[in-house]
């Protein structure tokens, strides 16, 4: 179950001139991987995400999900693709429709025509996957931002997707909320769901298997976090930044500390500094 982009371009139509948001992108997202997409505001990240489940279809080129082409010509194919590729967006308050959480989760499977008994099982599965079982009969309005995003993820999981796309889903959350959502994403990935995480937080990017950097609609970097963050010149050019421990490691290396070139957590960095003192 992979997503393939072949020479994909997407233009938003405009009154005077159209805006090219994604420019000739070729990319394959492997089954079971955890991919982070980074890049400045306006670099095309969200458009790329919306092309993955047919919310947008390419102006030219082809996007295939599990071999099926996203196209507005076949509504049933598009419907199938959308149930395989679940999306969660930035603002937790804009995504809730029902007044009781279990109804919120049931909305997707009901639309898929899933039988009543199975919907109950799916709600239980989805809520337990995000650690929110005890909220099943509550209203979503009083939850924290992180909890609301976990409910949004559960609503997607109830569709039994193969791929979860998180489009800046952690951007509006406090550190605790962000940690909760990231932990859920990592757990789902460990269970075999492919995760595509769009984020501005570099400390989230270093936890992915692969980082894709976009600029002006094109993919300009693509590699493991180690490969991406080693290239200081490009990191600056595309206005990204190093996670703090890696920035510190780089500064200390400049000062002559023999600290190896790799990605560090805080504890590992302290260990490496101790050895170099």
């Amino acid at each position: 179950m992979s997503v393939r982009f072949e020479n994909v371009t997407y233009e938003y139509p405009g009154e005077e001139k159209s805006v090219v948001a994604v420019k000739n992108v070729s990319l394959e997202i492997a089954d079971g991987s955890f991919v982070c997409v980074c890049g400045e505001n306006g670099s095309g990240k969200s458009t790329l995400a919306k092309l993955m489940n047919g919310l947008l279809t390419p102006s030219s080129g082809i996007v295939t999900v599990d071999g099926e082409t996203t196209s507005t010509e076949s509504e049933s194919a598009l419907f199938a693709i959308r149930s395989k590729v679940g999306m969660v967006f930035q603002n937790p308050d804009n995504q809730m429709i029902a007044s009781i959480i279990e109804d919120e989760i049931a909305f997707g499977p009901e639309n898929l025509g899933v039988p009543r008994e199975e919907i109950g099982e799916r709600i239980a599965y989805a809520l337990s996957a995000v650690g929110m079982e005890e909220h099943r009969h509550h209203t979503p309005y009083k939850l924290s931002g992180g909890q609301k995003q976990r409910i949004a993820i559960a609503a997607v999981l109830a569709m039994r997707p193969k791929i979860l796309v998180l489009d800046e889903s952690t951007a509006m959350l406090d550190p605790k909320g962000r940690a909760e959502v990231l932990a859920v994403a990592e757990e789902l990935n460990a269970q075999g769901i492919t995760v595509v995480l769009i984020t501005h937080f570099m400390e989230e990017a270093v936890r992915a298997d692969r980082v894709v950097v976009m600029s002006e609609g094109a993919v300009v970097m693509d590699g493991t976090p180690e490969e991406i963050f080693r290239d200081r010149e490009k990191i600056n050019r595309y206005h990204l930044e190093l996670p703090v421990p890696d920035y510190l490691a780089a500064e200390l290396r400049k000062e002559g500390f023999p600290i190896p070139e790799k990605i560090f957590g805080e504890e590992e960095l302290a260990e490496a500094i101790c050895r170099s003192l």
Binding site: P243, P245, I273, C274
Partner: peptide, 16 residues
């Protein structure tokens, strides 16, 4: 805590 402080605390616990 910010990353810098976490690194410093980890160093302190190692005797720095």
């Amino acid at each position: 805590a910010p990353s810098v402080v976490k690194v410093a605390k980890a160093l302190i616990s190692r005797g720095v």
